[in-house]
Nucleic acid binder design. Sequence first.
DNA 1: TAATGTTATTGAACCGTTAAAATAAACTAT
DNA 2: ATAGTTTATTTTAACGGTTCAATAACATTA
Lengths: 354, 354
Amino acid sequence: MKKQVSIKDVAREAGVSPATVSYILNSTPGLSFTPETREKVMAAVEKLHYVANQAAKTLGSSRTEGIVQSKLIGIVIPQTENKRRESHIMFGNPFYGTFLSAVELEIRKAGYHLILSGTNPGQSYIDIVKSRTLDGVIILGAYPSDDAAEYKKYKIPAVLVDCYGSGDSFFYSVRTDDRLGGYMATRYLIEKGHRNIAIVTGELKEHGVNSERYQGYLDALREAGIRPLKRNLFEGYVDYRYGAEAAQNLAKNRRGVTAVFATADITAVGLINGLHEAGISVPGDISVIGFDDAEYAKMCFPGLTTIRQNIMEKGRQAARLMIEAVQNHGLPRVERIIPMELIERGTVMEVYDN
Amino acid sequence: MKKQVSIKDVAREAGVSPATVSYILNSTPGLSFTPETREKVMAAVEKLHYVANQAAKTLGSSRTEGIVQSKLIGIVIPQTENKRRESHIMFGNPFYGTFLSAVELEIRKAGYHLILSGTNPGQSYIDIVKSRTLDGVIILGAYPSDDAAEYKKYKIPAVLVDCYGSGDSFFYSVRTDDRLGGYMATRYLIEKGHRNIAIVTGELKEHGVNSERYQGYLDALREAGIRPLKRNLFEGYVDYRYGAEAAQNLAKNRRGVTAVFATADITAVGLINGLHEAGISVPGDISVIGFDDAEYAKMCFPGLTTIRQNIMEKGRQAARLMIEAVQNHGLPRVERIIPMELIERGTVMEVYDN
DNA sequence: TAATGTTATTGAACCGTTAAAATAAACTAT
DNA sequence: ATAGTTTATTTTAACGGTTCAATAACATTA
């Protein structure tokens, strides 16, 4: 690691003081400089290939309250090392990849950088935030409520993505109306004549995405006067394998189920393949609807009928909200709801009489 | 942003000097302290919830050559904003998600953090490296050769993943033997009786992954005494859509092609679905083999026969190599080759006589 | 007992930058 | 011509750590 070119080198080269260089490069408001001085400085910067040291900037500006700028945004995704369960791995579900892609693009455009971290569920992230003096944090999935107080205490803007249960006015939030989505999916199946509808989903933690979608499912059943059956609830993991497992169980004991709502596409695909393997045709024997419209929803055969949420858009919104929050300190809480739409492909079939 | 607890606060609380706190917390070698002092310090740290400021650490230690530690590893993935071509989007190909997941896990275990960035192809990343004083950089795909000199100059360890053409002894490298992989895929098709084999691939840039796989394809043909045909080369993009496009062209004018080697699974799946749409059966009419064994290779129907590369393993190796390089400065160049294996599923069919 | 090591601890310079206060130079206004 | 503003720039003191040289306290050796 060679000694880097510092602001002093630039100052010397340009024949001005370090402060002048700093002011000019940051175009600090309320200060004026001669065009000549400006030019001299810029020329020196060019000549020496000067790039400011971010650590020093962060440190130097940490004196003034509120304007600390590490230009670093943290993004936290739950992920544990777990050989047995893909669902614990960040990108077991490609949803994250797409989302991250959109976030990165926006964040970079705004001149910030993204510091990516997984966390063991429940593990605190606040140390990282403190030690790196992050400008803000984007949190995916359930957020560790212990940290919440700290974020507020230190006034770190936090954007919660797909989080429920924090009505707290401090946090920004981006999500879809998952309950409505669950309702849409189930209602669609009902409209197609299905009455005995199973649901395959991940852990129904309080205030989670799965839980909301499940509520929506119940809403739709209730509306249609269908009594929900406990045995039609398959609660497990959000991964391919659990879908396949659910398929096996379903194949063993169908009890008249004609349709399944899988609360994530990845589970849906596992389910479909599992059913195929068990000799059950989709949608011939059982209809399936998913959720997300992930990349591969259109790739599998038959194409997966699903509730589409615009993941890129979700990422974009989260990033923009973050930047806004960082730049206009103390903005009032904003909640962005990303719209959904039902995509009809080939995994749902109409049934007549029952 | 509240004023943070500093090392001075801890020192005061413990009744020692800041230097002592620093030494104890970093367990600086060659120094001894009374157990009492140690305990006092640790107690104060606990009590005040002290977390060291990384910016200050980085800056403070930047005096001593070689041991600057921002504890930040950069990871660079080519990605541009391009509405028309998914291939330019980082996670258009889920390969990246899986890879990133593995890297993050390893990096975090070693106490480092990952700073994630896309780059417009050809755009320099060196400014980020300098400004953030990154400890090292993991670079995916073709690397901007202009930066290479800078990395060397500043002695920034760089791990090149899936990069060819840098025999430079400064760089570490992780990759698969793509040429061999291309050979394996093609040879397998030949063994199954195919002689008129097309290849669908991304841009054949000099020294790229695609180019290597293409070479392997040629190797296999040559070995079998088959003359490669120009019209059998479909050179485009590494995305779903290009696979579908290639399928259309192929459907319009098959000229006896009975098998296709798609150099990425995502393209393979696009191809298969495109062929289906055009009324061509896979593998009935045309066999397809892919490359990667991405998540959805087993999800599509029929399951995709493909060359599997262990992506998690690739990520793990890249991360470990990085950490090693950072910690043992000036390690000699290492190259890790991740093995492949052929996964037989349902998209290749044997043909007899021709 | 004085000289000599050790061991535990501290003081202070320094890293690269920002920000507040100070200064110098150039204009106004009286 | 003198004081008062305004404009352009510099000086200095942080920011929160690390690290080297210095010191104090204690044990050892001659």
